[in-house]
Amino acid sequence: MSMIGEYLRVTAAELARANQDPDWALAFVEEVQDAEEESEPAPAEARHFSTYKTWDMLRFLLARTDFPVNVIHGEESFAEEEDWGYGPPRYLRPERVQLAAEALRTTNYAQLISGVDPAELTSAEVYPLGWSELSSLEWGRPWYDGLTQFFEAAARADDAMLLWLD
């Protein structure tokens, strides 16, 4: 079984409802995922985005830059009694999404991997392991670029973000 980083853009009203009714939030997530599964919108047009198995690699790389927002796990809890795959979901408020979008936009992937030795990821037991070659660092590039586009679109819409591992 894989661990996948998941994101859902939500309006302020949807975030408020999710905080009040976590069961509604999970049903809403599933509804959006199902709707977008067939159409596969680009990250800038999507409400749902996945970083696939790169979530931990991106967490490791962003931590090296003292990234100002936790875009991998979120920052605020809700549905603490729920398990959406690998623990409860979390969220980012719109102002944190905007800060994250700006930081993602100004931190390109080449900067993230500059000076990184794949052995560092292996030593840190970064999921999903297998960091034996320098070229393995390129694996996260398309997901990082997609995440950047997704956050920029959310920031433009003044959306909040639900985050979870599934």
Rank of each mutant, 00 (worst) to 15 (best):
M3L: 14
L8Y: 00
S135C: 04
W139G: 04
V29D: 01
Y52L: 14
S50I: 10
A46T: 02
A35E: 15
L137M: 10
L58R: 04
L58H: 04
V97D: 06
L58S: 06
R141I: 07
A63E: 15
E95D: 14
L121P: 08
V69E: 00
A18T: 09
S132Y: 14
L121Y: 09
E80C: 08
D158S: 14
E82Y: 03
R96G: 01
V10I: 13
Y52K: 12
V97E: 07
F60R: 08
W164L: 09
D166H: 06
H48G: 00
L92C: 07
E30W: 06
Y52S: 12
Y86G: 02
E81W: 03
M3G: 08
S123I: 08
T107E: 06
A13F: 02
R9L: 13
G74N: 04
Q98C: 00
N70E: 15
E125A: 14
D21I: 08
Y127V: 03
T122Y: 05
S114P: 03
A46L: 02
Y52G: 03
L163I: 15
W131K: 09
N108F: 09
M1S: 10
M161A: 11
Y91I: 06
S39R: 09
L129H: 13
L92I: 02
F60E: 08
W55D: 05
G115Y: 08
L137Q: 10
A25Y: 07
A79T: 07
R17N: 06
P89K: 02
E152P: 00
G87N: 07
L137G: 10
V32C: 03
W131A: 12
V97P: 06
P68I: 00
G140F: 03
L8E: 02
D21F: 07
L61P: 04
A25G: 08
W84V: 07
R96D: 06
A13Y: 07
Q149M: 10
I4A: 01
L165M: 10
P118F: 11
